[in-house]
C-alpha cells in the first residue's frame, strides 16, 4: 500500500527557552537564530509508522511538506530515514496560511499524487498545537479520519488502529483510504543511517507551486485563511518568595496554611 506522510518544520523544541522569540506585530513565532528548525516530532512518529508498514507490507512512502525552501531539509531527513520520495509545496501565495488554507494545499497535492491507500500525519504540530490540518485534509478529500493513534497496522486493504482515549484505547478498522494521525506513543522514530543520508542526497525534491497544483488563489495562504490571530504574546511568569516564620516546624506549618488561605490558594 502506498502511504503519504505530511510534514511540517517547526522551531526546535529542544532549543534553550531563552531563545524563544515571537513577532508580536506580525503574529508569528520566530525561529531562534543559529538553531535550525526541525521536523515536528509527531510527524517523525508518522514517518516511522509509515516506514514500519512499508517494511511489513511493501509499497511506497511519499512525504509532502508545505513550506519555505528550508523545508527541503526536513524532506531530505525523512528520505534519509527511508521515505521514498519527497515533494515540496512552495509558492509566495502560500505564506501566512492557517490550518484551513494549509489543509487545502496539502489536499490538492495529495490529489495530484493520486496513488495512496493511507495518509499519515502527526497528531499535532509542536508550534501551534492545533491538530486541525489532518482533519481538514480528510474533509476536503472526503476521507474518513482517526486522530491520535498509538498503533497502526494493515490487514489487506483495511487499516486497523488503536485510538488513544483518556482511560485506554479503542480499536478501529477503516476500509479504504483514510487519514490517520499518529501520536508519540506509537513508536520511537529511527535515526537516519549514513547510507540513508547518501541515498537521500542523490534524490531530487520536486517543487510544486500554485500553478502546478492548480489551486484556487482565494483558498491558499492568508487569502484562504479562515482564522485570524488577534493577539500573540509571551505570558510573563513572576515569582515571589515569602518565608513563613514560626518557632517550631508545627507553627511554621500552621502559619503556612493560614497564609495560603489568606491568598485564597486553599
Amino acid at each position: 500500500m502506498d502511504i503519504i506522510v505530511t510534514l511540517k518544520q517547526v522551531p526546535d523544541p529542544e532549543a534553550p527557552k531563552e531563545t524563544f522569540r515571537i513577532d508580536e506585530s506580525g503574529m508569528k513565532i520566530l525561529n531562534p537564530p543559529n538553531i535550525d528548525p526541525v521536523i515536528n516530532g509527531y510527524d517523525e512518529n508518522a514517518i516511522e509508522a509509515a516506514l514500519q508498514l512499508k517494511e511489513a507490507a511493501g509499497g511506497k512512502v511519499v512525504a509532502v511538506s508545505m513550506g519555505e525552501t528550508g523545508a527541503t531539509r526536513a524532506l531530505k531527513q525523512a528520505m534519509a530515514m527511508g521515505v521514498d520520495e519527497g515533494i515540496l509545496l512552495q509558492d509566495e501565495s502560500f505564506a501566512d496560511a492557517d490550518a484551513a488554507s494549509t489543509a487545502y494545499v496539502l489536499a490538492r497535492a495529495i490529489e495530484k499524487i493520486g496513488s495512496y491507500g493511507l495518509i499519515l500525519c502527526g497528531r499535532q504540530a509542536s508550534d501551534w498545537d492545533q491538530s486541525q490540518v489532518p482533519s481538514g485534509i480528510a474533509e476536503l478529500l472526503g476521507l474518513p479520519s482517526v486522530t491520535a493513534v498509538q498503533k497502526v497496522a494493515l490487514q489487506g486493504d483495511t487499516v486497523r488502529v488503536e485510538r488513544i482515549l483518556e482511560d485506554g484505547y479503542e480499536v478501529l478498522d477503516i476500509h479504504g483510504p483514510c487519514v490517520v494521525t499518529v501520536s508519540n506513543e506509537a513508536n520511537k522514530p529511527r535515526y537516519p543511517t549514513l547510507k540513508g543520508i547518501m541515498t537521500a542526497g542523490k534524490k531530487q525534491i520536486p517543487v510544486w507551486d500554485a500553478a502546478e497544483l492548480g489551486v484556487d488563489a482565494a483558498q491558499v495562504g492568508s487569502a484562504g485563511a479562515l482564522t485570524r490571530v488577534s493577539k500573540l504574546y509571551v505570558p510573563s511568569f513572576d515569582g515571589d518568595c515569602e518565608f513563613i516564620a514560626g518557632e517550631t516546624p508545627e507553627e511554621m506549618g500552621a502559619n503556612l496554611a493560614l497564609r495560603l488561605r489568606e491568598l485564597k490558594i486553599i
Partner: peptide, 14 residues
C-alpha cells in the same frame, strides 16, 4: 553541502 548539514544534524542527534 546539504548532505554535510544532514550528517552534522544526525550525528548530533545520535
Amino acid at each position: 553541502s546539504e548532505q554535510q548539514q544532514l550528517i552534522r544534524t544526525e550525528v548530533r542527534n545520535l
